[in-house]
Computed example of a mutant assay.
Amino acid sequence: MIYIDTIIFDLGGVLIDWNPEYVFLKAFNGDKEKTKWFLENICTSDWNENQDAGYPLAQATEDLVLKFPEYETYIRLFYGNWEDMLGGAISGTVSVLKQLIESKKYKIVALTNWSSETFPIAQKRFDFLDWFEGIVVSGDEKTRKPFKEIYNTTLNRYNIKPEQAIFIDDNKRNIEAAKALKINGIQFKNPEQLIEDLKTFNIHIS
């Protein structure tokens, strides 16, 4: 049996519901096809992840407007209305987090791809972000998952042994990067599945 003493949580998609569709479905009058096309071709996830690694939001917006001037109004909505992309907390996972902390058996930290410019908005909205021993925010570190530097920063900063840690993330790519550094991984799909997968590490949540 693997001995686990640390659990590392991703935030967006695991503890916090975040989705650009909340803004763009409204902007495109509920047209799912237009929304999907726009987010796959204009304000892409790769483009947004560049800001997660520290690129300024205002500059990224101007860069994209220059490239796609015909979509300027919609491009400016991405960070202009960013707060509306935040849904609520994923309550089932927050409950898991609470039980893990209350057990006092584990070091609990977070590792998130998030712009340092928008992260304070989430901190004000979600009080459970204060529960962590620490949070590594990609925008502060000027790098992001899945690059090994940000995992090593997390391990070193909080004195974590990779073989004794579990990393929970909804993105398979990020889990595979963690496993390459000998960190155990659980790909998050929903709170019920997370509870089941934690049992394989002898961690039982009621």
Rank of each mutant, 00 (worst) to 15 (best):
Q164E: 15
I2V: 15
I101W: 05
L25V: 00
Q164C: 12
S138Q: 07
A178E: 12
L15V: 08
G92Y: 07
C43G: 02
K142N: 15
D46Q: 10
G12D: 13
L194V: 07
I42C: 06
D84T: 01
L198T: 05
D17L: 04
S138G: 06
G54C: 08
G87Q: 03
V96R: 10
I8L: 09
T112R: 05
T200P: 00
N41Q: 06
E163F: 04
S116Q: 12
A60M: 04
G87F: 11
M85K: 00
I4S: 11
P56E: 05
I2T: 15
D197I: 00
K26W: 01
D17S: 09
Y151K: 06
E83A: 14
V14K: 03
F167W: 02
I121T: 11
N41E: 10
L11D: 03
Y3D: 13
I175K: 02
A89C: 05
A58E: 14
V94K: 06
Q193A: 12
G87N: 05
L97T: 12
I90V: 09
P162N: 07
T118W: 02
G12P: 06
N48Y: 08
P56G: 07
Q123T: 04
A27L: 10
A110L: 07
F132S: 11
K104V: 04
N171Y: 01
L64P: 01
I4H: 09
D63F: 03
M1G: 14
T118E: 03
L25I: 01
S91Q: 14
L97R: 11
F78K: 00
L129N: 03
A60C: 03
E163K: 14
I203E: 11
E192P: 01
S116Y: 05
S103Y: 08
D170N: 14
E176K: 13
N41M: 08
W47M: 06
T6S: 15
L66M: 07
L64E: 06
E33T: 12
K32M: 07
F24A: 09
P56R: 02
G54F: 10
A110V: 08
A165F: 05
K145H: 06
T35E: 06
I195G: 04
Q193W: 01
L111C: 03
Q59C: 00
V109Q: 03
Q99R: 13
W82H: 11
K36Q: 11
I195W: 09
I135N: 11
L66A: 14
L181M: 10
N152M: 14
K189Q: 12
Q193V: 12
R125V: 01
S91T: 13
N159S: 14
D197Q: 15
F9H: 03
N29K: 15
E72I: 06
L155G: 08
Q187H: 02
I42V: 15
T93N: 14
T118Y: 10
R157Y: 02
V136S: 09
I121R: 01
Y151P: 05
Y74K: 13
N50S: 10
K148F: 10
E149V: 05
G139K: 02
K148C: 00
T200S: 14
W37D: 14
A58K: 15
D127Q: 12
T93F: 00
I135D: 10
N19Q: 13
T118P: 00
I183G: 03
R76L: 10
A165Q: 04
